[in-house]
Structure formats: C-alpha cells, structure tokens
Design a protein around this nucleic acid. Structure first.
Lengths: 228, 228
DNA sequence: CCCGGGTAAATAGTATGCAACTTTAGATTT
DNA sequence: AAATCTAAAGTTGCATACTATTTACCCGGG
C-alpha cells in the first residue's frame, strides 16, 4: 500500500468525522508537513477524493470539502431506493447458504444491541448495518452496481440515521432485515426488493424528520440548502 | 484548463478509439515525451482515468486499460435499464417547453439521417442520440444521477450499437424517441419510464446479437469473457 | 470613507531527480 | 535440462525545486 493510499483513507475519515468541515479547503502542504510527506502523494489522495465526490477541485485553489444540502440527501435516498432493491433482486438468484447465514448473524447481533440506550451501541448497529448491506452487495455479484452504490451512499448519512430512529422505527428496521433474509431464502426477488425499498424509504422519512425538526427550524436558514 | 486535463481527454479518446488496446499499459514516460510534458500531469490524468473505470491501477506497474467482457456489457445495460427510466420519470415533472422542443429537434434530425446507408450517418445518429439522452438528464436535474450514468455508460458500447441495428430496430428506436417526448409532454412519468426501459432493453438485444453472432462464434473463445 | 490598482504572499501546477519495486534475462547450481 | 538465484533494466512512487496563478493586503486617489 502506497503513502498516497494511506493519506487518502485518513483524509476521508477526517472529512467524515468533521475534522475538515464542509466548504473548508484541504491544503496539500499542511497535510504533507503533518505526515512528513511531500505534496505529491497528498495531491494524489486529494484528486482521488475529488473524483469520488468528497471534495470539489477548484483550479489553482485547491480541494474544497463538499457541503451536503438537504436536496443532496434527498437525492441519495432516492437513488438508494432505486439501486438497493435491485441489489437484493439480483442477490435472490445468487446468494449462497453461507451468505444467508452471515446475514442472519448480523441481523441477530444488531437486535441484541439495538435497544441498549447508549450512543455507542447505536454506532455499532450502524457498523453492523453497513456490513449487512455490503454482504447483500457481495451476493448480488455486480461490480459496477457496487461502484455506483459506493459512489452514492458515502456513509455520512447512514451513520447518523439510527440515532434519530424512534423505538418503533428501530424495531421496524430490524424486522426488515429479517424479512429480507426470508425473501432471499425463498428466492423471491420481488418480495426482497419491495422490503428493501420500504426499508430505504423508512430511513429517508426518519432522516428528513431529523433535518427539518432538530437542526434548521429555528435558525432562519433556508432549509432548502442547509448543510448537514 | 491544465495540462493534466488536456492529457486526460486525449488518453480517454485513445482508449475509446482503440489506440490503447485493452490490457495494454499506458506508460507515463512515453506519453510525457510525446507531448513535451513531465510525468507529473500524465500521472494525474491516468489516476483520474483509473478512478473513472477506464483503466486499472496496478501498484508499481502502471495503468492497464480495462478489457470489456460480455458480462460487463450485460451489467451496463442492466444498470441503464434501471437508471434511465428513472431519469425520464424525474424529467416528466420538471422538463420545460424549451427542453421538449430541443428533444424534438434532435429526434427529427436523427430520423433525417438514419436511413442513409453510409456509416458516417450512423455515427451522427449516435452523436445526436447521446445529446438526446443528455438533454433528458438535464431535465431530470439530479447531479448525482448524472454522475452515476456517466460512470456507467462510457459510450464505447453506445457508439457501436446503431451499426448493428436492423432497419426495423432503427425505426423502432426512432419511434421510442418520439413516444418519450409525447409522454413527457403529457407529464406521464410511468409512460415515459416504460418506453425508456423498452428502449434500453431493445438496445441490449441488438448488442447481444452482435456479440454472439459476429465476433466470437467461430473463434473457440469462451464468449463469457470475450473482450469487446 | 470608499474604491481601484499594484505588489507580495500563499497556493496549486509542473519539472526533475532519486529511491523502491517489479520484471526479465542470464548465469549458476542441481 | 530444469530450476533457482542474481543482476540489470525499466517503471512507478516520492521528494524537491521551480513556475504560474490566485488571493489578500496595502496604498494612493477619488
């Protein structure tokens, strides 16, 4: 693994975590000094982040971290609602018994920790949930589809979702996971796809409620382009 | 526009045209000598091409042009059949009268040249067709959806398609263009999406026939991973 | 006090040189 | 003769240095 690859991962994490806030610039020289590297590998990492949509490259000015508007998140959920049902539909004809068992394990572990009230538990649910979805992608066995979803989802959204779920929504989400496994076991692509679509649209509802209620209602900022 | 941007365009064109054949390596130093540039901007262009799926980066070895298998093309049509109907469905609620007029102009010009027997005419149809689809994308007004489709379609497929159409298929394709415009005028998203899906699936059929019949039938090469 | 121009500082874009890695060809050993 | 080790050539990965562009600040004029 090259230095540029490592720097890529680090900067990506920092953008995710908020260390590099939206609309801020990531300076090549500063990162280079920090890690004892020259600008060259940092530059390479930044260009990669730009091409994957984490930042915008402004000529002779640098890489500016993208700011997510409410509209962007609408788009993400809309595209996930389109793509992820397709994932499980493909998976229904290809998934192996082993993969089904893995999914079941993940679903059970999520249910074990989901009702613990602390935030760390919810973070673990988020991690398990990501693994669940990636397992489905693996079963779908379509590299391009994987690339597209990776390009779309970008996790800053997913990560926060669970923290806003009501207990009812959490329970429903866990139900969905089990139901999808059932549908896949039955090799019923329509069933699986329909549940997945419901799963995504439910997540969208929770997320939209979070945005409109908690964050921008009282700030007088136009919610149409409020950053999240 | 920087030197790296120009080099990016040039190498992309060369890959498209076949000047850099699949599985061959694009050497940084060679391109640099040719254009009187150092390896740095060439390197940047190559990494961009890699991240957009035109080549694979093999560490310490270079950028290898991707080879398209029949399975890859299946995937592309499958994803287009999913995404492009969504494009027109979105467009149906947003498209302006001006955009509808542009689409009609493009459809008419395609019909004018489509029956001329020479190959150059078919190339112009392909160009117009690309503009037609891009106009729909603009009307759909979803930057992320645009990014996804750009990542998927990559034109080497589309370009060759028309050359394999039978007269009947060409006529049907032109019909589709008109019917989509009609559906959009009527603001009927389901109608528009259905026609578009048919449009893509028809293209897939023609393309699959081309691959299985013309190119790999008599060569004893496994058609499952034959490069195109 | 505000506005425009010019200069300096900061930053990205590119060139060059060196280091590390991979591959290949040849020599050596079994 | 086959396999393995070795060395050399070629290529990428990274560091350093230079250039070009942009930006910010200061200064003078309105």
């Amino acid at each position: 693994m090259t230095a540029a690859d490592r720097v890529y991962e680090i900067i990506k994490q920092r953008i995710l975590v908020g260390h590099f806030p939206p609309d801020s610039y990531v300076r090549e020289a500063a990162i280079g000094r920090e890690f004892g590297l020259s600008r060259t590998p940092i530059r390479e990492a930044l260009r990669r982040l730009v091409s994957e949509g984490w930042a915008d490259a402004i000529p002779h000015q640098g890489a500016r971290v993208v700011s997510w508007t409410q509209r962007d998140i609408q788009e993400v959920f809309e595209l996930r609602a389109l793509l992820e049902p397709h994932v499980v539909a493909r998976a229904s004809g290809r998934i192996t018994g082993e993969q089904l068992a893995d999914l079941m394990t993940l679903a059970e572990r999520m249910e074990e920790v989901v009702y613990e009230p602390d935030e760390a538990a919810l973070d673990e649910v988020a991690t398990l949930n990501t693994r669940y979805h990636r397992c489905l992608m693996a079963a779908a066995d379509s590299p391009r589809l994987q690339r597209l979803l990776d390009a779309v989802v970008q996790v800053p959204v997913t990560r926060r979702s669970f923290h806003q779920y009501t207990p009812e929504e959490l329970q429903r989400s866990m139900q969905h996971h089990r139901e999808i496994i059932r549908a896949l076991t039955a090799r019923d692509s329509d069933w699986a796809a329909s549940v997945m679509r419901a799963h995504i649209l439910a997540a969208r509802t929770a997320h939209m409620r979070w945005i409109s209620a908690d964050r921008f209602g009282a700030q007088g900022k136009s919610s149409a382009d409020a950053t999240v």
